[in-house]
């Protein structure tokens, strides 16, 4: 698949941890352990997993906010992970990010116009003043923001309004690809629907491609075209959304689906054993999920299953998936 808009090949990210100066081995946290994904244009590619699974690191690495320790990242066929800042600048126009917490991601001392004009001035220096203003107004209208907001500061807005402004900031350079990292999880239920609809509309109007990072499977089911389920820095299962929900192949995916509270009730009636994530510093040699897996056998603790394609097109990293 060479027509992917974003492609990662075996990316790894390791964070060195603070060490005692006499220690022989330097402990390293494995945040990403060889992730291969290819996002096609127009997709809403979702990444789900629990905290610490590396989903945010994956988004940040693709955006160039974190350099990979190994592996390759391609954007429209062009390798971007080793580019210097100057070469990367034109690409930054085309890929932007929306962060989780709009209370933290907007500069509190900068009014909305300044917040939105900054990316244009920085990434599109050829634009004149009136062009910048026109572009800011266009994107405000497209994201359902009132033009009168331009002179206001972030504290004057509610959470939902702030997230609209953050989305407007991401769109102001007319990108083709957006990484949205938990864009609705800091918002109230009635506001979540507004923002999800906005993202849907913008995708239809502007032909955007999303990498949507979330922990919420019900949002994935509604929003995603394909889903990657991550666990401890690895993709455990990658499938079309419908397939993942109707025929989950990896036991971890099944555990996640089983954990969603159901509106009809009844799924919390039986006690569940405490599940523990293995230490990401001293990773066990076998399958990272083996300690929690109901199907685990001796083989799972020694031999790590590779991600392989099954008959129905799903990719799963499990010895027993079929």
């Amino acid at each position: 698949m060479t027509d992917a808009i974003v492609e990662t090949k075996g990316i790894e990210v390791r964070f060195p941890l603070p060490t005692h100066f006499l220690a022989r081995e330097k402990p390293v946290l494995h945040a990403l352990n060889g992730v291969d994904i290819a996002i096609q244009p127009g997709e809403s590619f979702c990444v789900v997993g629990e905290s610490g699974c590396g989903k945010t690191t994956l988004g940040r690495t693709i955006m160039g906010l974190q350099s990979p320790t190994a592996g390759e990242i391609y954007f429209n066929g062009q390798r971007i992970d080793q580019m210097d800042e100057a070469a990367r600048k034109p690409i930054r126009r085309d890929m932007q990010m929306v962060f989780q917490n709009p209370y933290a991601s907007l500069n509190p001392r900068r009014n909305v116009f300044e917040t939105l004009a900054e990316p244009i001035r920085h990434l599109m220096p050829e634009k004149t003043g009136p062009e910048v203003r026109a572009q800011v107004e266009e994107v405000l209208a497209a994201t359902g923001c009132d033009p009168s907001w331009q002179r206001k500061l972030p504290h004057e807005f509610s959470g939902g309004q702030r997230q609209r402004i953050a989305i407007a900031r991401a769109l102001v350079t007319n990108p083709a690809f957006i990484v949205a990292d938990e864009p609705i999880s800091a918002l109230d239920v009635s506001i979540q629907a507004q923002i999800l609809n906005l993202l849907d509309d913008l995708q239809a109007e502007r032909g955007l491609t999303y990498l949507f990072i979330t922990h919420d499977l019900s949002v994935v089911e509604h929003f995603g075209t394909r889903v990657a389920v991550m666990y401890l820095g690895r993709v455990m299962e990658l499938a079309e959304t419908d397939t993942l929900f109707s025929a989950p192949k990896h036991p971890y995916t099944r555990l996640l689906l089983d954990a969603i509270p159901k509106i009809e009730g009844g799924s919390f009636d039986n006690p569940r054993e405490p599940g523990e994530l293995p230490d990401p510093v001293n990773m066990p040699p076998g399958c990272p999920f083996a300690p929690r897996c109901p199907m685990a056998e001796a083989r799972c603790r020694t031999e790590r299953p590779e991600l392989r394609t099954l008959d129905n097109g799903t990719q799963a990293a499990c010895h027993f998936a079929e």
Partner: peptide, 15 residues
């Protein structure tokens, strides 16, 4: 808490 942990905790409280 994470979703799988949420399920554990809520099942425990319910029980």
């Amino acid at each position: 808490l994470d979703v799988t942990i949420q399920a554990e905790i809520m099942a425990l409280i319910l029980k």
